[in-house]
Amino acid sequence: MQASTPKLEHKISYDLLKLGFLVFLVLSPLLPYGITMAYNSYLLVRTPALIKSLSVFPGATLDKSYIRQDGQTNHCLELIVRYKSKVPYDQEKLRAFYTSALLKQGWHKHPGGFFAKPYFSKSTMIVDISTDQKIIWLRVTFLAFPIFQPGCFQ
C-alpha cells in the first residue's frame, strides 16, 4: 500500500503535465497574437517618454498628442502631435528634429525598428499645417509587432 502511493502521485503529476502540454499545443496558434498585443502595449507604455522628448522643439509648444492604431492597416501605431509656435515653422528642421529625437529615444532598437530604421524620416509626416505655418500636425508611424502582419510602409 505504502509503495503504491508514490506511484499514484507520480501518475497524477504526469497526467497533469500531459494535460498542460496538450493545452499548450492546442492554444499555441494564439501565441503570435498574444505576443503582438503584449509588444504593442509595451510600445504604448514607452510613448510618454517619447512625447516628453518631442516637446522641447525650440520656440514651439507641444499642444496636443495622442496615439492610435493606424486606421488603414491596423498594423501600425501612429503618434499624432500638434505643435503651436509664435513664428512660422521651418518644416525640414522640425522633421529632422523628430527623427533625431526618435533615435535618441532608442525607438530604432525595438524589433520592428530594426527593420524600420531607414523609414524614420519617411514615417515622420507633416499631415497638416495652418496657412500662417504656426500650427502643425505631425504623424509618427511605428511598426506594430509584425510576426503575422504585413507592413505599414507599403
Binding site: V26, S28, P29, F115, K117, I147, F148, C152
Partner: peptide, 24 residues
Amino acid sequence: ARGVFLGNICYIVLAVDYFTRLGP
C-alpha cells in the same frame, strides 16, 4: 494536437515573409 502545433509553426516560419518585406 501535435498537428495543430506543427501547422502553427509552419505558418509562423512563413509569416516572417511579411516582416522581412517591411525593410531593406
